[in-house]
Simulated assay, not measured.
Amino acid sequence: MEARNQTAISEFLLLGLTEDPDLQPLIFSLFLVIYLVTVLGNMLIILAVISDSHLHTPMYFFLSNLSLNDICMSTTTVPNMLVNIQTRDRSISYTGCLAQIGLALVFGGLENCLLAVMAYDRYVAICHPLRYTVIMSTRLCVLLSLFSLGISIVYGLLHSLMILRLSFSSVVKIPHFFCELPQIIKLTCSDTSVDNIVIYVAAAIFCGVPVFGIMLSYTHIVSSVLRLSSSEGKYKAFSTCSSHLSVVFLFYGTGFGVYISSTVAASPQKTAVISAMYSVAPQLMNPFIYSLRNRDMKAVLWRLIARIVSVP
């Protein structure tokens, strides 16, 4: 089939997780519940941090940023999928697809950066406790958040502009429930050798550096904690990192699992199902991890929920 320039493409077709019509109501209900729980859980985290002065600390400031990012990440992909299932219209405009790719990369990159910033916050809290309030000032926290957002926007724009130069056939069917960069690259008619190099180099820089920062921070944390003589002090120090570590393992664990599974998956549809876990699982589980493993957050959330329920 002869390739046409990307400007001639008006829309793509999202095939979703399955083409079986009997499974569509089940998928719709499942993802609707996941989306609502994700938005509600992360919104409660944000409201809890805002409403309680005891949570006005750098750690909870970054946590509220992470929760807001998780809401945005889920909103980028899931609502469009739900509308497509409900209307039985699988089409998405070229502009909409490009925007979805860019936003997914921006919010994915921002989560990556925020996890690194939160690891640095834990490093300062444990390794330099006496200077914590001086180092982690409000100005630095805001600058770190803005810098993370700026880096993520550059990462998303880089790949979005890269897609603009690609050409596609007249009918493009994406075996996924949202426009994902690797799927788009596979479906293009253009030479993707340069694009693949850009993807790997960008991943090494924009994703590798935050991962290295997390590893470096926790190397210093473990080294500092092991030097403590009190077992109670060691437990307290590690407990302050447990929630963040759980989120880190969930985010990178699911991502690594998707990458490994996609290389051995028998069909693109199975790859889409596996990738769906990475797209929704971390955003869904993060509020539960921080609320269940953090006594201060749990107490504030219960008070907030009680206040909301008691309102006539």
Rank of each mutant, 00 (worst) to 15 (best):
residue 167 S to R: 10
residue 173 K to R: 14
residue 194 V to Q: 06
residue 189 C to N: 11
residue 178 F to W: 15
residue 216 L to Y: 15
residue 221 I to C: 12
residue 152 S to F: 08
residue 187 L to Y: 02
residue 219 T to R: 12
residue 214 I to A: 04
residue 163 I to G: 01
residue 157 L to S: 12
residue 157 L to K: 00
residue 194 V to G: 00
residue 217 S to T: 12
residue 190 S to D: 09
residue 208 G to F: 10
residue 194 V to K: 09
residue 170 S to G: 05
residue 200 Y to W: 09
residue 151 I to K: 08
residue 214 I to N: 05
residue 216 L to D: 12
residue 163 I to E: 03
residue 203 A to E: 05
residue 171 V to T: 14
residue 182 P to N: 04
residue 156 G to D: 07
residue 187 L to P: 09
residue 148 S to R: 03
residue 181 L to C: 06
residue 163 I to R: 01
residue 148 S to E: 03
residue 198 V to L: 14
residue 168 F to Y: 15
residue 179 C to M: 08
residue 148 S to D: 01
residue 152 S to I: 01
residue 185 I to S: 00
residue 160 S to V: 12
residue 209 V to H: 02
residue 176 H to G: 04
residue 191 D to E: 13
residue 147 F to V: 13
residue 221 I to F: 12
residue 203 A to K: 03
residue 201 V to A: 15
residue 212 F to I: 14
residue 169 S to F: 09
residue 160 S to C: 14
residue 149 L to H: 00
residue 203 A to T: 13
residue 168 F to E: 06
residue 207 C to A: 08
residue 200 Y to Q: 12
residue 155 Y to C: 05
residue 213 G to S: 11
residue 182 P to C: 07
residue 207 C to F: 10
residue 196 N to Y: 14
residue 216 L to M: 12
residue 151 I to T: 06
residue 201 V to N: 01
residue 179 C to R: 09
residue 186 K to G: 03
residue 196 N to R: 13
residue 169 S to K: 05
residue 148 S to Y: 01
residue 195 D to K: 00
residue 204 A to W: 11
residue 169 S to H: 11
residue 173 K to H: 11
residue 188 T to M: 07
residue 163 I to K: 01
residue 153 I to H: 05
residue 176 H to K: 03
residue 180 E to H: 12
residue 166 L to H: 02
residue 193 S to T: 15
residue 184 I to H: 02
residue 184 I to T: 04
residue 189 C to E: 14
residue 156 G to V: 04
residue 178 F to Y: 15
residue 220 H to W: 12
residue 164 L to Q: 11
residue 222 V to C: 10
residue 170 S to T: 11
residue 187 L to M: 09
residue 155 Y to L: 07
residue 179 C to V: 05
residue 152 S to Q: 02
residue 205 I to Y: 08
residue 149 L to R: 00
residue 216 L to Q: 14
residue 153 I to A: 06
residue 159 H to P: 01
residue 194 V to I: 10
residue 150 G to R: 04
residue 163 I to Q: 02
residue 194 V to F: 14
residue 178 F to A: 13
residue 187 L to T: 07
residue 207 C to V: 12
residue 217 S to K: 07
residue 157 L to A: 15
residue 201 V to E: 02
residue 162 M to F: 00
residue 192 T to E: 00
residue 177 F to D: 03
residue 183 Q to C: 08
residue 204 A to N: 03
residue 203 A to N: 08
residue 148 S to A: 15
residue 216 L to F: 15
residue 155 Y to W: 09
